[in-house]
């Protein structure tokens, strides 16, 4: 009970912190970084749903992020469609492409799946890089418009954009929470543990794996569309494996297959990276080994580590309590 109330307190505090952040630190640069962190976290949640909960490590996630970004870019810049309609279509188109790729990719398992998706990611990158007519090639797409004002709310200012990202972020977190803490989430976890066992429990692994894959591409596409709308310029480098590996790092550091992992990992690394500006290009000198060390010593990342510590403390308490009770009983008896 104690932990539960604690959890509620922590979550409320975090939400309040998110709301007042622009007032405490009215620094445009930090606002920019925080907005980006919200966007990355959404993408990491997508990856975590698939790799963390369902056990399929997709290395095409950066590619799907880029598809989301390019769909909104092409729709607004080339076809001059409105922002909101494009923004709605971007994750849906990404999801549709994800569905088609997933149908084939999910026939493979483990190593083959990782290699297959790595190749899918590369193909997405190469297509974006080379298909100049559609994507602008290496020059990318410039001039993605701002979101149109909704009634009196305009999205001109960075603060407004921050709140927009924050609201979508909260929505995504809530949706993910419900998914992973429901029968759907339990079904994913059962598949991760053992597909043979899941099948023998009457679970259609094919359908549920596809569901997890499509959901993960949806969130990647959503994050990509938010990124494009926020930065307003996109180039093929956002489809490169670097993005996939960044997202992977956020997930592993925070804790693969844990609910809070994506938030913890993403914010931690984004904030540390900002404070190690001089390291920018070499940040992987630290995060690369960190990734490897964590996966060896704490495979479920920071959140998994803390959960384990809390659990053990609780267990010890219970044991010592039981021991005490027994001692008292024997004392009373003797």
């Amino acid at each position: 009970m104690n932990i539960l109330t604690n959890k509620k307190v922590i979550i409320s505090l975090l939400i309040v912190l998110g709301i007042v952040f622009p007032f405490i630190i009215p620094n445009l640069y930090y606002l920019h970084i925080m907005t980006l962190a919200f966007i990355w976290t959404i993408a990491v949640y997508g990856l975590n749903l698939l790799a963390g909960y369902t056990g399929y490590l997709s290395l095409a996630h950066g590619g799907f992020f880029a598809i989301g970004a390019y769909v909104i870019g092409i729709l607004t810049v080339k076809l001059e469609m409105g922002f909101w309609l494009s923004f709605l279509l971007a994750p849906l188109v990404t999801m549709f492409i994800g569905l088609i790729i997933g149908l084939f990719a999910l026939r493979t398992k483990e190593h083959f799946f990782a290699i297959y998706t790595l190749c899918v990611g590369y193909i997405i990158y190469l297509v974006i890089d080379k298909w100049e007519g559609l994507t602008g090639g290496v020059r990318g797409l410039i001039g993605i418009p701002l979101p149109e004002a909704i009634g009196p709310i305009s999205f001109q200012s960075p603060t407004a954009q921050y709140y927009l990202a924050f609201i979508i972020f909260l929505l995504v977190v809530a949706v993910i929470y419900r998914i992973v803490h429901s029968l759907t989430g339990r079904t994913f976890v059962a598949i991760r543990n053992s597909e043979d066992l899941a099948l023998s429990l009457g679970i259609s692994t094919k359908r549920n794996k596809l569901l997890a894959f499509v959901l993960s591409t949806f969130f990647a596409g959503l994050a990509g569309a938010m990124y494009a709308g926020f930065i307003r310029f996109i180039g093929p480098e956002i489809a490169y494996t670097t993005i996939t590996f960044d997202l992977l790092t956020y997930m592993i550091v925070g804790g693969i297959g844990t609910f809070a992992g994506p938030i913890v990992g993403t914010f931690l690394i984004v904030i540390i990276s900002q404070n190690l500006q001089f390291l920018q290009d070499y940040r992987m000198l630290i995060f690369g080994p960190l990734l490897t060390l964590l996966i060896i010593f704490s495979p479920r990342g920071i959140v998994g580590f803390i959960q384990m510590q809390l659990y053990q403390r609780k267990r010890k308490k219970q044991e010592s309590l039981a021991y005490k009770n027994r001692e008292e009983e024997t004392n009373a008896g003797g």
Binding site: I179, L183, R186, T187, V189, L201, G202
Partner: peptide
């Protein structure tokens, strides 16, 4: 808990909207 999943009908929609 997941052992009884096969006798249930809830889908993604049910999960998201509880």
């Amino acid at each position: 808990i997941v052992g009884h999943r096969l006798r249930t009908k809830s889908n993604l929609f049910d999960s998201i909207f509880r």
